[in-house]
């Protein structure tokens, strides 16, 4: 039963990916005869970052300017996740050590 479920899920995912790769025009731009993949339809925000990122933050690396400036809250969450992971590792291993004694 579980194997059947897994196979069904796999086939559904495979069909979705195949559909996207056969009809990329539904998910991106098509330039002339060629259906170009990787051209997103909504590019307003990308254009804003590319044109204003260097002036507003002064960083050449636009990825860094997005990660640390425009989307700083996300990075704060990542740092907190690492901090929490260290806390959890310390707690678990300390408790195991006390058990061993």
């Amino acid at each position: 039963m579980r194997k059947l479920l897994l196979c069904t899920a796999l086939i559904v995912v495979l069909a979705a990916f195949l559909y996207v790769s056969i009809n990329p025009a539904d998910f991106g731009y098509s330039t002339g005869d060629h259906l170009v993949f990787g051209h997103p339809r909504y590019v307003d925000m990308d254009d804003y970052f590319i044109h204003n990122g260097q002036n507003q933050t002064g960083a050449n690396n636009i990825v860094t300017s997005i990660v640390f400036d425009y989307r700083g809250f996300d990075t704060l969450g990542e740092a907190s996740v690492l901090f929490t992971a260290v806390l959890a590792v310390g707690m678990v291993l300390r408790a195991l050590r006390r058990d061993a004694k």
Partner: peptide, 19 residues
């Protein structure tokens, strides 16, 4: 250049190193 970005990079680098 880049204002607070290098400071934040250093802070996060130190944090990841310690963690």
């Amino acid at each position: 250049t880049a204002g607070t970005l290098p400071i934040m990079n250093f802070a996060v680098g130190i944090e990841v190193l310690g963690g």
